[in-house]
Nucleic acid binder design. Structure first.
Lengths: 129, 129
DNA sequence: ATGATTTTAGGAATCATTACTATATTTAGG
DNA sequence: CCTAAATATAGTAATGATTCCTAAAATCAT
């Protein structure tokens, strides 16, 4: 049974106000302003709990070695800049036909899908001359 | 300038014979049979070099905390079983229209794409009764 | 062959995440 | 409103995948 916790609320509230998919460390630093004694472990545990509750999602990318967290649970995909590490949201096409084909061909049951595009964001592309 | 190395060759050859996307550790254990003194660092370095050369690719998933490596460089997607960790290849639909839309909408330049589906593989789904 | 360059083995270092534990907070039921 | 059982927390230690470092070995252009 899940009990209330101000810390968990603060983590969720912080994520709610962001679209830049912060890391656990960034969330920790931010929440510390209101909860100076909060520990990084608490942040991690709450991020896990919130993920299990499907209130947030964990994003994994190839560049950078930290998980990123996303309050946006609407189906969407991500673009990850290989230069600056920025992650952007993107509305991908419907995958249901693809899922159906995958399930039939490999006899699997699909419950989730994650697409990540890699490349240069507008700013970094401009810098490249 | 890249010099030849038996160790790098062995890593590549091992990967060539597999479709199960082994981890660096698994590759290390396998290659050790022919090169008993090879070090894990050497395996990691060569996996990086081979990735940079686009001879293999690095795969990242949410379950399990290790990278997986794939000799198959043909465009394809992956299915990752959330129970046993198995990764299967899958021929996804063409993404070029989606890429074009993404590039126009976000003003980015896309160079790579990775789709991972999550769920239960045939065996694990059967076990679930 | 030889010298410059790259690679290696082995081990130490890094760093994100998880585990542990004693204390504090939450909450259901009387 | 109490109280006791359950859950959460802070702080710190442990883990584990990956990277870094260095002296010695292998490769290769000339």
């Amino acid at each position: 049974m899940l009990k209330n916790s101000k810390q968990r609320e603060a983590v969720l509230e912080y994520l709610k106000g962001r679209t830049d998919h912060p890391t656990a460390e960034q969330i920790y630093d931010a929440v510390k302003k209101d909860f100076p004694r909060i520990s990084l472990g608490t942040v991690y545990r709450n991020l896990s709990v919130l993920s299990e509750q499907h209130l947030i999602q964990k994003i994994v990318c190839e560049n950078g070695d930290s998980y990123r967290f996303d309050y946006n649970m609407m189906p969407h995909s991500h673009f990850s800049c290989t230069k600056c590490g920025k992650i952007l949201d993107f509305q991908a096409f419907d995958r249901s036909t693809e899922v159906q084909e995958l399930e039939e061909k490999l006899h699997v049951r699909v419950s989730d899908e994650k697409t990540v595009y890699y490349g240069l964001c507008a700013e970094c592309a401009a810098e490249e001359k």
